[in-house]
Amino acid sequence: MLWFLRGLRKGVVTTRYPRERDAWTDGLPSPPAFRSDLLTPTLAGRLVDACHSGALRLEGDELVLDLGSCGGCGDCVRLGGEAVYRSGEFELASRDREALVKRIPLGGAG
């Protein structure tokens, strides 16, 4: 009974997900999102080298992001400056493994 009253007083409630998305989920580790217009081949190469989990690779003039491999560590976000941001996405489940592979064109000069 005590835990119940304490819960009422503190307002501890079960998440309403999936009806509502909790505000704190913005802070969850999440894969990167890229500003492809600022993404130069040089920077992309550095990002690929920095990725611990091999989630990034270069294929021609595209940066390939495999969400299935990404652990959301955020190293590429720290390295990428204005070109890389946290995507804030956590609802990534898919029936199709290939749908988790994203191709980002390298748009930046240099």
């Binding site: 909790d22 990167p32 890229f34 969400l67 996405e89 609802e91 990534l92 489940a93 898919s94 029936r95």
Partner: peptide, 25 residues
């Protein structure tokens, strides 16, 4: 929450989101 989303996708109660995302801002 990602696990919940996945389980609900598996049972057809939620739509997949990731296919529509490009991760290109």
């Amino acid at each position: 929450l990602a696990l919940l989303h996945g389980l609900l996708v598996a049972t057809g109660r939620l739509e997949e989101k990731v296919q529509a995302l490009s991760f290109d801002l």
